[in-house]
Design a protein around this nucleic acid. Sequence first.
DNA 1: ACGATTTCTGTAATCGATTACATGCCGGCC
DNA 2: GGCCGGCATGTAATCGATTACAGAAATCGT
Lengths: 334, 334
Amino acid sequence: MASIKDVAREAGVSVATVSRVCNDSGVVSDSTRQHVLDVAAKLGYSPHGAARSLITSRTSTIGVLLPDLYGEFFSEVIRGIDRAVGESGYHLLVSRSHGDEREIVAAFRAMRGRVDGLLVMSPDLDARNAVNALRDHFPVVLLNCPSERDQHDSIVIANYDGASEAMHHLVERGHRRIAMITGLPRNYDSVERLRAFRDLTREAGIGCQDAIEVGGDFTEASGFRAGQVLLEASPRPTAVFAANDSMAIGALSAFRSGGARVPEDISVVGFDDIPMARYMNPPLTTVQVDISALGVRAVERLLGHVRGPSDGARQRELVPAHLVVRSSSGSPAA
Amino acid sequence: MASIKDVAREAGVSVATVSRVCNDSGVVSDSTRQHVLDVAAKLGYSPHGAARSLITSRTSTIGVLLPDLYGEFFSEVIRGIDRAVGESGYHLLVSRSHGDEREIVAAFRAMRGRVDGLLVMSPDLDARNAVNALRDHFPVVLLNCPSERDQHDSIVIANYDGASEAMHHLVERGHRRIAMITGLPRNYDSVERLRAFRDLTREAGIGCQDAIEVGGDFTEASGFRAGQVLLEASPRPTAVFAANDSMAIGALSAFRSGGARVPEDISVVGFDDIPMARYMNPPLTTVQVDISALGVRAVERLLGHVRGPSDGARQRELVPAHLVVRSSSGSPAA
DNA sequence: ACGATTTCTGTAATCGATTACATGCCGGCC
DNA sequence: GGCCGGCATGTAATCGATTACAGAAATCGT
């Protein structure tokens, strides 16, 4: 593969001249410029990225650390990241890490020298220590992570507010016996949504025995199982708030196959508003989050730090979440 | 940020020794090894990726060029790629390019020196030239691209076979007036699926006036519009084959809002079997493709070339596609 | 016409690693 | 005691670019 030296030799100039031509830096006479360009084209030369970033210490790349690369949620985040990055000329080095500290550190080591900054989405509460170490080394923006005392820049979904709206809706419709299908206990989103559930049931004067919590893990299958459990509860809850849409959809299936009508017998509310939600039968009442905005904002913030000198101020930014009422929720039967 | 020199100075050894410790290469006495490790840990040293790949000419990274990073289809591909790559210790440098030649070349230039091989998915027929140029430079595997005369390694969905099954199903159920909602005319998948539509209608003795083609662009919105057009056709087709599920879903909406019942008045068949397909009302008959397998196989093939010396043989591999009959298709009303 | 600019191009240091080769040291053996 | 061999470590070239500085050639002013 042709290097700058090959081009220089072939064109009968020095490497410095070739470099100047390629980067439009310094002055080069029109004739040599054209000649160098011709030779470069003939040889199919393109500059070696690693060599370039070694000397310039810029990589034009940002690293992205996600718990998963697929699924509706992450897909949307990536979409946002990509949209924001696309306009800036930066590239994405992607890694998956399920968030435990060891993995994050490994990913970071692999990215050292290959990225200008890092976007980390690791809802696992354990990840904080790892990220603290990272932060000293280069710009980091957290996506949807817990960030204590604004140690980091972060973009966070308004989990508590959104869940509050959902719960408020159910209470307002007259539900007095409400279940929550929770996410994983070490997951930040899950914790926040559950906190809202507890606060709002308490505020509404709903007793502990009527505020049922069933564990899930964000998968549709776990939602289905939770739905089965709730069907057999006695007395049966009149409404279910699932910590995400996938579990809400799983619960819907369980209710349908168990012969319970939604929303007549039981109301269901989800969280995220994934594209599938509106296609469910009945269409799912859920908390809408502009997930891709999470990605866009994160990239903007990160690039701000990477380009300009970071002003040192660490901010936490909220992405709003609002209830969208569809047909899966109603008033309890009298 | 600490470099190998800093560690060497701090530990009172040479850079060569530090390097040997980090890579477990050469011999180092246990005492110095431990000392160097301690110092490295204290300084938070991690090797500089760009420097490393400059000298070793390996990057442990593969480049991925996709038309889009989101949507159910691409999301699944990425999932497959990630799964295959995760086990290998390689990383992913991702770029989006809508497939025109200029963009592909630009992306390639940006990746030169940063990746060991390239995965290109560019269904646009124009992309071939660009990819031909690339191929001379490093290992390339094409995903779902047209590849003439086995110039490249490629993994391709069995578009023609899958579409044939779909059409065969409709013909067998007695449909004699069938419409196809096509994809973009420059798209490889689209062309192949359309080819099967034309061949099978001809084989079934269906005349041109009864084999209706309506243009779409793979989006749900275009499927909706096509559905509206078909509702007004006279005589109205009794079955519709959409070139992908998104358009089939759009058409379903159009039919429902136009008062046509599916499948009683009109049968609908899609392609891809995206997760949402089975949740439609009625559940969508469609051609199932193991999309993530596309990614997995591509990575396996690419890594084979990157690691071992490529044996020079260029192969085309097919990912099977088979019809899944659900409730959106039936026999035409008598 | 000659020195002072200006304009263009080349030389060489540099980034942070790897690695072939050289070197120093120590012990064993004759 | 001197020599040989092996182990541990250091020296320096190298990868492919960028860029400060130097030097050569051309232009200019007086």
